[in-house]
């Protein structure tokens, strides 16, 4: 089994820089890539009955959208570069879920971007990378 690098993507410039750094690393080391997108979700939020009813459809479309607009567009270029790429979309608390996915996939490295596009995104994403660094059991590379 070859080693895998998990890359956290969210469509931001920071995460794209993380991806290219991870791709370079993977190519040199002969590792595989796992592109992960985590949709922020908590089981303890509140909804109206109408939202509960629509939840299942909405989940499907969220996953679809993440695949179509964030993950799939990256695959072709990476594969052309000779890399083996897998993708995964999951709901949950971002840092926690990334770690969990890393474990599931047997990743030995995690790459994450530090800055998102907007200030708000950067704020959220920043805390994610910090949380990841503190709790991860595998090396984490935070790409500025």
């Amino acid at each position: 089994m070859s080693n895998k690098i998990l890359v956290a993507l969210d469509g931001s410039d920071g995460s794209k820089r993380a991806l290219s750094a991870a791709a370079a690393h993977a190519k040199l080391a002969g590792f595989d890539l796992v592109l992960a997108y985590v949709i922020d979700w908590s089981p303890y939020s509140f909804h109206t009955p109408q939202e509960l009813e629509e939840r299942h459809q909405r989940r499907e479309s969220e996953i679809q959208r993440a695949n179509d607009s964030i993950l799939t567009p990256e695959i072709a270029a990476l594969e052309a570069d000779g890399l083996k790429v897998e993708t995964v979309v999951h709901h949950g608390k971002i840092a926690e879920t990334l770690l969990e996915l890393g474990k599931q996939q047997g990743a030995t490295q995690i790459y994450i971007g530090r800055r998102g596009e907007s200030r708000l995104q950067a704020m959220i994403f920043g805390s994610v990378s910090a949380a990841l660094v503190q709790t991860s059991t595998v090396p984490v590379t935070v790409v500025p």
Partner: peptide, 10 residues
């Protein structure tokens, strides 16, 4: 099944 309605939410 994360992302579906949780028991807590229901």
């Amino acid at each position: 099944s994360h992302g579906e309605v949780s028991h807590f939410q229901a």
